[in-house]
Design a protein around this nucleic acid. Structure first.
Length: 424
RNA sequence: GGAGAGGUGGCCGAGUCGGCUGAAGGCGCUCGCCUGCUAAGCGAGUGUACGGGGUAAACCCGUACCGAGGGUUCGAAUCCCUCCCUCUCCGCCA
């Protein structure tokens, strides 16, 4: 959520910067509601002050007959307050609803652009593998080895669900452990195993609600949602809390399955593991002081990149332009891994600085020193990495002419020393 | 799922037949005093949000908040209703 005070004082600037997202924010409505709210609040509070004062007098008066007139008058005042508060409540609900639907303002350094094509490539790492045969797509490799079963996944549940068996299942598990060990052991993140279902407040805190309910799997009873990313439960760990400044930065990593409806992506990536309704991801989440968030994002991004470097998978980093930015993010770097089967780079991680946008929604604050006013933290998160897509990248980059797949050296200790996946 | 108990400030814990209780008391914490060291002792202070004033701040005024939301009342932490959560026992279960 944007700061209402900032909007009040810098309406044109906010409008202009939000416009770079290609989205028209209804800021005129904000101005009207905000003004009306303050009018009503002023009137209501003045009457409450009067009521409190007179009620105290009535309480001290023994002879109630002498204050009968005041009692009658206060009855009337209470009725007026009720009327004002009813309207105030409606105005505040509208205002809140409006603010919750306005996306974050892009970072000053976010490239301005309309879409994906305007994203700025900032880095390439690794040499692209060469093959003396036509490299296959991962779905062919996986089916050929008998380790990915797309048909049965669909039979058991439906489209965009896949059954892993044997080496693929083990490889997925090895990747999860490898990533968590790296981030907890060398990058000093604290491992979290959060709930996979969350309530509405949590979804609102990170920005999935109220605008993107259609993208989420929902349980009717109780009214819970399946998490689309560990960002949601992990960021909400500190919702409505005031952290000690000396504890920042707080860094968490969590492995969780993620559930997404992928509404509106019909026909896209229908083959293979790229776009599933359920996938595994290791997430990195940070709570930091505002002045540190740019540097912390750079570090988080590097922590995610390190996974690919250890696996020797070629990748590039892209600075997302304003038009391609997610709803809550101010700045986002995507890491895209090379997929030889499709001869293209595909997103495998998205690392973002949300600044105080989520912190304001979720009331996540910190105190620099004892006795000082609480301030909003900055929140960051990024995939470290999407596990299923990492498996895809390994299958495609490490595939051999005979259909087998070499295991990256860094993963072998996690697979009992296994060097190669053969048809089983 | 059944039965019972309970949700008050950073923590513990009082709140009588509804009225100077933002909330006793204790602990913790901060500052000052005292003190060979440590410990103890003395004094003062110690929530958040919103609105208004003042603005570089400090600060001042008002309102709200005793799990959440409604209701009764001139007035509710205290009474009534609904919901949520926690604990204990039973049942069930990985």
């Amino acid at each position: 959520m944007l700061d209402p005070k900032y909007l009040r004082d810098n309406l044109e600037e906010a409008q202009r910067r939000l416009a770079t997202r290609g989205e028209e924010a209804n800021l005129a409505a904000f101005t009207d509601l905000d003004r009306r709210r303050r009018e009503l609040l002023g009137e209501s509070e003045a009457l409450k002050a009067e009521k409190n004062r007179v009620s105290a007098v009535i309480g001290q008066t023994k002879d109630k007959g002498a204050v009968q007139g005041e009692i009658v008058r206060m009855k009337e005042v209470s009725a007026q307050i009720k009327t004002l508060d009813d309207e105030l409540k409606a105005v505040e609900e509208n205002l809140q609803g409006l603010l919750l639907r306005i996306p974050n303002i892009p970072h000053e350094e976010t490239p301005v652009g309309a879409s994906e094509t305007d994203n700025r490539e900032v880095k390439r790492w690794g040499d692209l593998p060469t093959f003396d045969f036509e490299p296959k797509a991962h779905w062919d490799i996986g089916e050929g080895l008998g380790i990915l079963d797309f048909e049965r996944g669909t039979k058991i549940t439906g489209t965009r669900f896949t059954l892993y068996r044997g080496a693929a299942a083990k490889l997925e598990r090895a990747l999860i452990n490898f990533m968590l060990d790296l981030h907890t052991g060398e990058h000093k993140y604290v491992e979290i195993l959060p709930p996979l279902m969350v309530n509405r407040d949590s979804m609102t805190g990170t920005g999935q609600l109220p605008k993107f309910e259609d993208d989420l799997f929902h349980l009717d009873d109780p009214d819970y949602f399946l998490i689309p990313t560990a960002e949601v439960p992990v960021t909400n760990i500190h919702r409505n809390e005031i952290l000690a400044g000396s504890d920042l930065p707080v860094c968490y990593t969590a492995y969780t399955p993620c559930f997404r409806k992928e509404a509106g992506s019909y026909g896209k990536d229908t083959r293979g593991l790229i776009r599933q309704h359920q996938f595994n991801k290791v997430e990195l989440v940070k709570f930091v002081k505002p002045e540190d968030s740019d540097a912390e994002l750079a570090q988080l991004l590097d922590n995610a990149e390190e996974v690919l470097r250890r696996l020797k998978l070629p990748y590039r980093v892209v600075d997302l332009c304003s038009g391609d930015l997610g709803f809550s993010a101010a700045r986002t770097f995507d890491i895209e891994v090379w997929l030889p089967g499709q001869a293209t780079y595909r997103e495998i991680s998205s690392c973002s600085n949300f600044r105080d946008y989520q912190a304001r929604r979720a009331a996540i604050r910190f105190r620099r020193e004892d006795g000082e006013k609480p301030e909003l933290v900055h929140t960051l998160n990024g995939s470290g990495l999407a596990v299923g897509r990492t498996l895809v990248a390994i299958l495609e980059n490490y595939q051999q002419a005979d259909g087998s797949v070499l295991v990256p050296e860094a993963l072998r200790p996690y697979l009992g020393g296994l060097e190669r996946i053969d048809k089983s």
